[in-house]
Design a binder for these strands. Structure first.
Lengths: 194, 194
DNA sequence: GATATATATTGACGTTGTAAAGATTGTTCG
DNA sequence: CGAACAATCTTTACAACGTCAATATATATC
């Protein structure tokens, strides 16, 4: 009844795992549908029965990325060591940067070009969860009145920094860790000037 | 002596123009080397003699994008109507957002994935020019001591916002123009809290 | 004017995503 | 229990891609 193993075990899950490991191990432009099938040990057309198109596969991987992402930010914001709203925002921003750093390819799928990645329902739902999570954290600092613009401010800053890092657009002389902390501080300071 | 027209006129320039118009008129993932050759009216292998690889062609387009980009920011910052350092920074940020909005595909080439775009000398030079231009504008506000971190803060914010807009990741209910102005203000306010 | 060089075309190779047809296995119902 | 069915996987095929090698052609130089 439920989508369970037929022939080779649950290939759908295997394909998602193969895709995730491929994205972690090789340059993103070398991750092809056929390569993922190869890694899963099936023929190149097998994925068709579980994902209509490659974009759907990548979209599902992105959706799972969003779930881990939300969980990571949630955990960071619930740390007992950070009790003030500013401290929790700081922790979330830090967790955001760490996630993007640890999962560059999947982060790129989550926020990157729509050309290659389809928009699955799971993805929309998970990304909206991330957004409201961020907006709540902002509202805890500046109130609900302009929290959506505040959230966009936060998101822009952290997103931009994550991508500049991932694309190696920052001078190697820049002390990155210190800079990240400083930029998060500036970002929060600006928030309070809204 | 100089690389001038041989057979078909200056094909090198024609290819760059064809690539730019293709990037402006169709989704970026449909812009192929063969499509660009088609638009230039030559065979699919003709570009080889002017650009070793497709990445080199795109890299050169990105370099030209950077030159237009620097010029646009420069013009904005030299407007007579904006005399304070904050006002000039505001004008530059605004020009940045307008450029990214008007040239989404080329902006993606300039700051996007290195997989498809090669790093040409022109590109490095132009992008460094843009960076120092930004750093100077920051130094005019907060001084030279931490201007590089300040510049990274500014760049992250505007870059992130540009990409979120381009990828349509912002709720359609958000009043974008007003939000942009507010975010630029918050970004500058944070800068002064460094 | 002949030779050499730069430029463009043609054809080919290996790769990709997707679609259709054939084979194989599991499920379901008489 | 067996027969019909449906779901899954493989095989084969197609058009398009970037790149390369071989060929043809026009320009420049001596």
């Amino acid at each position: 009844m439920a989508p369970k193993p037929y022939h080779h075990g649950d290939l759908r899950e295997q394909l998602l795992l193969a895709g995730e490991s491929a994205l972690a191990e090789m340059p993103a432009d070398q991750v092809s549908l056929r390569e993922i099938a190869r890694r899963a040990g099936v023929s190149h057309a097998a994925p068709k029965h579980h994902f209509a198109t490659m974009g759907d596969l990548l979209g599902e991987i992105a959706a799972r990325g969003f779930q881990r992402f939300v969980a990571a930010l949630d955990e960071a914001s619930h740390q007992t060591s950070t009790q003030t709203p500013e401290g929790r925002m700081m922790a979330m921003g830090w967790a955001y940067l760490r996630f993007a750093e640890a999962n560059p390819a999947i982060y790129g799928l989550m926020f990157g070009k729509r050309d290659s990645t389809a928009i699955t329902p799971n993805m929309v739902q998970s990304s909206l969860a991330a957004w409201s999570q961020l907006e709540n954290a902002v509202a805890a600092i500046i109130g609900r009145s302009h929290s959506s613009i505040g959230a966009l401010h936060v998101w822009s800053s952290v997103h931009g920094l994550s991508l500049l890092k991932a694309e190696r657009r920052i001078s190697p002389h820049m002390p990155l860790h210190a800079a990240e902390e400083t930029i998060l501080r500036m970002m929060i300071a600006g928030l309070k000037d809204l």
